[in-house]
Amino acid sequence: MHALIIDDSRAMRSILRRIVTDLGFDTLEAGHGQEALDHFEAGRVPELCLIDWNMPVMDGYTFVTKVRENPDWRDVTLMMVTTESEHGQIVRALAAGAHEYVIKPFTPDAIVDKLELLGLVQGEVPA
């Protein structure tokens, strides 16, 4: 399975990459929403996207709405991973089509737990 990590911080992409790689995902990365859409449009459609909210060029919320406009991409699991923790923002993202929401800072276990809930990983995870 492929995970696309969308965050303008290389450090955060690195942290998330280590977590999902340990879970068996192959990873792609993008520094903003438009770069992530470019992956989709080039045929590199992942099973999972981990999406920051505040990014230059195209933010994560806009990215979610763009993905959900295309029925060919309806099976992609979208998980926000962001510092945006206002209730209204969480509701907006979920209403736009995000499946899950993780607030930074997070522990690796928090990501794993969400992915288990989504059925994308199962059982014991390698340390």
Partner: peptide, 10 residues
Amino acid sequence: VNMIGGNVKS
């Protein structure tokens, strides 16, 4: 600072 600021904002 993004994480600290975002959580202060909340």
